[in-house]
Write a protein that binds this DNA or RNA. Structure first.
Lengths: 202, 202
DNA sequence: CGCCTCACTTGACATGGTGTAAAGCTACCA
DNA sequence: TGGTAGCTTTACACCATGTCAAGTGAGGCG
């Protein structure tokens, strides 16, 4: 489902187009024209179509490209390298507080486009599914350590953890209400730990 | 900012167009054509333009129309009629769990369009600002009753309450992860009360 | 050296939704 | 009888998407 039949062209050009798309979205927003992308990449509009087929596929490629470029796997590994479930949760929220900021412009576009382009929607959903699983693993770890508070199942707490740390609440708090990254991380962590962890050390 | 210079046409036709728009969005999604709306309303495509000017204004009108139609003021009044802050919070989350379901399709479209149409964005923001204020008032009430847990300010807890109960987390939990309304209300309430309320009676 | 192919560019064009313009039609009202 | 409000019908300009076909230019190969 990820790297399907490396289709066409110079990988370097492909990369330049993806970077240009990213840039264009950051500057212009959701209504970028492929002309804008092409101009920024220094290629013709048709080159974009030769590489990606259509707009949907371009955004689709961006879904893979961004985490790679931002070194997401390493950042995630740091979360899972923590020595306790509680510390994993702390690190996960911290990761959200910085990573969400980097992908926000693009995430906006993708969130909007997912319902119009089925392939894009599927890719976005897959990303969400992985994220959900990661959050649940952290809660599982807390439970394994005997620290999950009475009244919570791993599934319920995991799903809540996953959803309240989604892009939209983060965006509202930091972009619209002016919360800093640190404030977001600290307050959100407190909310979750207060409820999830028995005899909280928050 | 709300009812500006009742411009044109039969209010009943206007209403039919709005209902048709709503319907069309529920069935088709974000990429409704104004032709679809007109057909459903039983009017010509131009009638839509005569009444609303353009697509953005049509959606703008829908932002006002939906809460009116759904009797939102009354529902909100019930929340504020509660005898304690904690009970207000409970009722507010319950309200989210049912009301969000009714407006979800349209909310999706509006969320996406707010960044493209400035007027629409402003209207949406205003709606969010009022929502934030209402959530804060509830936390204020809890604080006034001396029940706000140490470590929380009214502002921080209010903003978190407001953001974690937004449409997107609700949508993910109920639409994608299959949570029922009751489960949403109960679990979300627990999360918030566990953290916000001293000597929780959750 | 000539040839071929890959990775593009250039220019033209069909498609489809948005928004505007203009003329006509009809019911109601004075 | 005339006028006006509230539409309909038809036509059209605009613009982004996506497709098509022909051309160009650099590298590799025999």
């Amino acid at each position: 489902m990820s790297s399907e039949a490396r289709a066409y062209g110079d990988p370097d050009t492909r990369r330049r187009i993806l970077l240009a798309t990213w840039e264009a979205i950051e500057e212009i927003g959701a209504d970028i024209r492929l002309r804008d992308v092409a101009e920024r990449a220094g290629v013709s509009r048709q080159a974009v179509y030769l590489h990606f087929g259509d707009r949907g596929n371009l955004l689709l490629a961006l879904v893979e490209f961004m985490p790679e470029t931002l070194g997401f796997p390493k950042l995630l590994a740091h979360v899972f390298a923590a020595t306790s479930g509680v510390e994993m949760l702390r690190r996960a929220v911290e990761l959200h507080s910085t990573y969400n900021a980097k992908i926000d412009s693009v995430a906006r576009v993708l969130e909007a486009a997912q319902y119009q382009d089925p392939a894009l929607g599927a890719a976005w959903r897959e990303r969400m599914t992985r994220s959900r699983a990661a959050h649940r693993m952290i809660v599982q770890r807390i439970a394994d350590e005997g620290r999950l508070a009475d009244g919570w199942t791993v599934e319920d707490a995991g799903d809540l953890f996953y959803t309240v740390t989604m892009q939209t609440p983060w965006r509202e708090l930091t972009r619209e209400l002016g919360w800093s990254s640190d404030r977001y991380a600290e307050r959100m962590t407190k909310l979750l730990l207060d409820s999830f962890v028995a005899e909280s050390t928050a």
